[in-house]
Amino acid sequence: MGDDGIGVHVVRELAAEHGPFPDTEISDLGTPGMALLHSIAERHKVILVDCADFDQPAGTCRCFSPEQAHSVKKMSGFSLHEGDLFQILKISRDLGEAPSETILVGIQPGNVSPKERLSPAVTKQMNDYVNLLKKLICNTDCRPCGNPPK
């Protein structure tokens, strides 16, 4: 993976260098499709970090709630791993088992071609992403607003 693997790199960094956080589970969820429902069910708070295309310079980070965006993803229907995060979150709400709070952290990719490392634009901001995650986990001075974190 190229920058589409940003979530994996962030959770590794977070878990290895900054954890553990009390009452917090840090997981690489892979490409779970419907199985995401099981991972988030009835959690107090869920923070999902992934690469997201919102037409900004590579490395730009946005922190937002599901209500602050809508998906324009087109599903091919070819893969069991395929899933639209927003649809899964809606199912979770419809089933009455959604987390009390869901925060999405999207990072604009620079390169999503088959690779084994992140692009320089994303790599150089890794510390910023991790610090944002730490604030979100610890609830300090950070709320999802849809704008780049300060």
Binding site: M34, A35, L37, H38, A41, L95
Partner: peptide, 8 residues
């Protein structure tokens, strides 16, 4: 979903 979750 309950059955699938138990399998997981």
């Amino acid at each position: 979903i309950r059955i699938h979750r138990l399998g997981n």
